[in-house]
Amino acid sequence: MKQTKLCKLISKSEPIPGIFDFTVESPEIAAEARCGQFLHIACGGGTFLRRPISICDARDNCVRFIFEVKGEGTKALAERNIGDFIDVMGPLGHGFEVKPEHKNAVIIGGGIGVFPLFLLAKQVKSDVFLGFRGKDRVVMEDEFASVAKSVTVGTDDGSYGYKGYIASAMDEYLDKNPCDVIFACGPKPMLKAVKAIAERRGIECQLSLEQRMGCGIGACLVCTCESTKDGMDKQLRVCKNGPVFDSREVTLND
């Protein structure tokens, strides 16, 4: 039987204001975790529901996740101290699918969407594109650089690296370079742009989506996304069918 786990918080940092980098001890989760999966975390502080947070890395009996303080739940979680035990369900969901034919992979992340891509980047030698609002929001550039074929960082305001939307940087790269799969996670507008580019070019594309969740395991049907199919497959469960979907499966219209 699967179980919820109390995991000891063994390291905690705030690499940029409002972004918290946590590592918890859990040999079971570390052994089971696949790239693109998430943890469902009881944040404490009087909040009720668990919060889904993507796995950033898993190794040495430990699991790392990085999150932004957005509301009451993540605020309470950020206040936990090293040595505290955190109530975790997971790993959950359907992550990225890495296939033998993926010889030339591109990874693209935007904002806090870069964190769920790190474990993947460690597994597939890729050309990585990371987009942020501005120079002061850039995170994990060096870590991605240590595992990737190449890293291109861009900022929307042009204060660092490529000037403009990171999907445009990727599109320009694809004009000149071979690519057989794109893995993406980030804000909805970025995902829409990446989906359009991939489909125009006929490249396989896997998107990691986000949605407000309830149970986290597929029973309550609240975290749905609109699919391109009809009937009972019209609304897919982000927690169970995803969070990673083939771009051709989802409309991103919701």
Binding site: T47, R212, C220, V222, C225, E226
Partner: peptide, 18 residues
Amino acid sequence: REGNKAPRIAETPSGILN
């Protein structure tokens, strides 16, 4: 039935709306 559009859940004090 396909159900409603998402978001379908919101946390409220000591509970949820669905």
